[in-house]
Design a protein around this nucleic acid. Structure first.
Lengths: 162, 162
DNA sequence: TATTGTTATACTCTATAACTATA
DNA sequence: TATAGTTATAGAGTATAACAATA
C-alpha cells in the first residue's frame, strides 16, 4: 500500500503528503540505483565528506538506527566508496572515510538528487514553489516537528528466557 | 528510521515531505487510536458509507492490496462497525455495510482527521496554507502522480517447488 | 479464462537484545 | 557505569501464491 486515500472533497493533507513523499522516494531510489547507491548511502557519503564523523554521528544526522548504519557502511565499504578507520580520539569509534571514488560518486549523486527535486518541482510556478518550501519548513519547525511517541511501541520487548 | 536527512544547504524536498508525512501519520494514528480505529479502518468506513461498495472497490480507493483489505474488514467486523454482505449483483463479491455504530464512529473519526489536519496547518498564515495545498495538489497531478515501477520487485518470486 | 475474496506464508525492513571493547 | 560498534534475530507490515466460488 502507499498511503491513505483522499477521504473527501476538501484537500486531504495526509493523502497529499503521503502520496508526494512516497512517489518522490521511489523516483529518488530509482535514480540513485542507476549509480549503485541507495538514499542512505548517498546521505552518509555526503555528510562523511563534510568533516570527520563517526558512525554514530552519521546515524544521528541521517536519523538511522546504529544497526541500520552498520549495514549501510558495509555496503559503502563493499563498493569501495568509504572505509572505516579507527578514531584517534576514541578507540571504540570508527571514522567513516570516503574514498576518492566515493567522493566522485557523491558529487554525481548530489546532482541526481538535485535533478530529481528539480523535476518534481518543475510544474510549479516559481513563486508557488518558494511558498511550498517555506510552508513545509514551517511545518517541520512547528507542529510537525516531532512524532508523538506512540504508546504501542514499534515492537514489543523480547520475552525473557528465549 | 524516519526519513532521509537534509543533505544540504538548499531546502531538501525529500526530507521535508518524508518528515512531515511521517510525523503527521504518527499523530493521525495516535488520535484515531483513541477511538479504536486505524487510518485504514477510517478510510474504509467513510467510503463504504458514501455508497454500496465491494471490498475490491474499497481496496482500490484506499490503495490497499486486497489481502490487506481482508484484515481491515475483519477488524471492522470484530468491532461491530461494519458487516460483509453478499452482493446481489455478483455472488463472488461482498458489499461492506457500515453499522449504525460504525456510522456514528465514522463521523467522530472524520472530526478527528480534520482536527489533526487543522492542528498541523495551524502555524501557517492563511494564504501560505492555501498555496501549500494548491502546490501539493499540483505535484500529485503532475510529475509526482505515479511512482516509477521499480525494476527490483518488493519481493522476489517464490521459488518453485517449495 | 478471469475475477472476488480468502488463507497461508515468504520476504523485507528495521529495531531490540546481547555482546565486546573501550571510556 | 555508559557508550561505539557488531551480530543475530524477532516482530511488524505487506505482498505473493494458491485456492474456491463464481463470472
Amino acid at each position: 500500500m502507499t498511503a491513505m486515500a483522499p477521504a473527501r472533497t476538501e484537500p486531504d493533507l495526509s493523502f497529499l503528503l503521503d502520496h508526494t513523499s512516497h512517489v518522490l522516494r521511489t523516483r529518488m531510489a530509482a535514480a540513485l540505483a542507476e549509480i549503485g547507491l541507495t538514499a542512505r548511502m548517498h546521505c552518509v557519503l555526503v555528510h562523511a565528506l563534510e568533516e570527520e564523523r563517526t558512525q554514530i554521528q552519521l546515524a544521528e544526522i541521517g536519523d538511522m538506527d546504529k544497526t541500520t548504519m552498520v549495514v549501510t557502511v558495509d555496503a559503502l565499504e563493499e563498493s569501495g566508496l568509504a572505509e572505516r578507520r579507527p578514531s584517534t580520539r576514541d578507540r571504540r569509534a570508527r571514522i567513516i572515510a570516503v574514498t576518492e571514488e566515493g567522493a566522485r560518486l557523491a558529487a554525481r549523486s548530489q546532482e541526481i538528487v538535485d535533478r530529481v527535486h528539480e523535476e518534481a518541482l518543475g510544474a510549479l510556478p516559481t513563486e508557488e514553489r518558494a511558498v511550498l518550501l517555506r510552508a513545509l519548513n514551517r511545518l517541520v519547525d512547528g507542529h510537525l516537528a516531532t512524532p508523538v511517541d506512540s504508546s504501542q511501541p514499534a515492537r514489543r520487548a523480547r520475552q525473557r528466557g528465549r
